[in-house]
Amino acid sequence: MRRKAGLVLLAFAVFFTAMSPLTRWYAFPRLAKVPANQYQEAVLEADDPTLIDYGTMKAKKIDKVTIVQTLKGNVEASEKIEKADGDSSRDVVVWDALSYVQDADGKMVSKIPERYIFDAHSQEPVHAPGESVDGDPVKRQGIEFKWPFLTEKRDYEYFDAQARVTKPIHYKGERTFRGVKVYYFEQTIPWTKVPFPKTMPVKGITPKSLAGTGTTRWYTTVRKFWVEPTTGAPVYGEEIQRNELRGGTLLGERDKVTVFAGHVKMREDYIESTVDLVKSQRVLVLLLTSYLPWGFLALGMLLLALSLWLEARTRRANGSRPATSNDDDPEPEPEPKPARA
């Protein structure tokens, strides 16, 4: 009986010990993924920014500009891409995103839709029909919105949707943000000529009519992200952005006019909800990368030690009595009662 128990313990010991690396290096890369049906919104604000008045074509200071950013996972589109790809094991996420900007009076300033397609596990971009920014087809390189799981302390390539270019986003060190250990990243996009948004805030003004005047739009930004490294999710973001119109007949005698200049920061209530969401997701990722693998390993070792101890006890018991035909049942046989005289 004791020997059978030892063998059962050994089987469990091997089971848990094997589960440790299998969970970390086989299950985790396959199970950890961005869900295809994610829906997330974020509100960012710029206090006292400079904004162009398209009526007078002059820049003026206003109280506030608000950016509402929505990300919506399109499950049907992702399944269609997975089928077309022919690789059934590939998980693709399609995010339909909208950056809607409005001024302090609630009037629309700009509206930029995007379709971002990427691998659910690695966050590598996937190139498929529909990948676009503001209706223009693009072929992204690098990441956007989210870093990969288990973010490393290194620079990443980050896609800038306004300029449609990919530039490095530099790792600048560890920080603690609202009690969460984060990696701080910063990217600078130098002055770059960018297309006019397809949707303009004033009726009658279109990208085509603006381009016809010879006026061009230029943009620069410093992008800052505080990224929780286990999940790769930014818990906070800021952007110091400038947009200008340059040259052409539209500006008259002037060389350039500021379209927008401001320091955009995430609104406080969205910081709190993002931090809470990331904290909860972090536990799930840690479960697969740390808690379960180490727990399984410890349990496996404990059970192995227990099974070896049981085996040693069995052998000692067997050694102290004559060998029987049945080694599986090493329980000592009852000693014969002394015969009565």
Binding site: V14, A27, P35, L98, Y100
Partner: peptide
């Protein structure tokens, strides 16, 4: 023990998580 560990891991990863449905929530304006 090893076979059960392998079978369990392969099964769990093969099943994976369901994709779910596209949220009915709109892109906010």
């Amino acid at each position: 023990g090893l076979a059960v560990a392998l079978a369990l891991t392969l099964t769990i990863t093969a099943i994976g998580a369901p994709a779910g449905e596209t949220s009915p929530e709109p892109l906010l304006t």
